[in-house]
Write a protein that binds this DNA or RNA. Structure first.
Lengths: 108, 108
DNA sequence: TACAATATGTCTCCGTTGGGACATATCTCA
DNA sequence: TGAGATATGTCCCAACGGAGACATATTGTA
């Protein structure tokens, strides 16, 4: 039961908070879209449609949370994303809330 | 900056994960809709529309995460909600994920 | 050579969600 | 008595987001 709840919640959180999950992942190391898709799917056991992923990455770059650099592998190009200072601050803000929510059965 | 991020994120999380926030709150003590609205607004500094709140509470009851009991205060009735075992399990599953996400800069 | 994997992008339809109004009743206090 | 707070509910329309298709190019492998 708890396991089904878990899956459902992970699915919801990777959907609704996709941007944050992406930032968190890229924070560990610079990464490109396709790699991210594979990692997320392996790690969280959820499908991540590339039709949702790529627009989100571009959006995050527009907002200044990520920067990108094209890397050539022969003829094929990868768009490698790196997190910015602003992006890190966003992730920090998120982590702060998580901490409160964990401690915070102290909601009175 | 971090403060604006914080507010934005709290707003997003109370919207997208409203059900969980409600369960978490009711878990601390049985509560009715109007009180919840006031507490959430005071505590999180976000507006919680009653047009979103009441349908959600009813939905959570239908799903078996909450039970309700009508309490009379003179002629006025309050619908007091209590969390069920199933509801608690859902909150636990959520807490589990939060823990992972906090520790889990270990995403490789 | 043909298929699967790597790699990145757009677009459209459809369903869900949210904002805000509509609705009603009681209670308290000035 | 009239306004504001308490208390719970529904409903509609617009906006947003997701599922899945459309699109294209390279690389590796059977």
């Amino acid at each position: 039961m708890t396991e089904t709840f878990r899956k459902e919640l992970v699915q919801r959180m990777t959907r609704n908070l996709l941007d944050i999950q992406l930032l968190r992942l890229i924070q560990t190391q610079p990464m490109w879209g396709y790699k991210i898709k594979k990692v997320v799917e392996a790690l969280f056991g959820v499908t991540l449609r590339h039709g949702a992923l790529y627009p989100m990455l571009n959006k995050l770059e527009q907002k200044g949370f990520l920067t990108s650099e094209k890397q050539k592998q022969g003829q094929r190009t990868r768009k490698v994303y790196t997190i910015t200072r602003k992006g890190k601050q966003y992730v920090e803000a998120y982590a702060g809330i998580l901490k409160e929510q964990l401690v915070g059965s102290d909601i009175k």
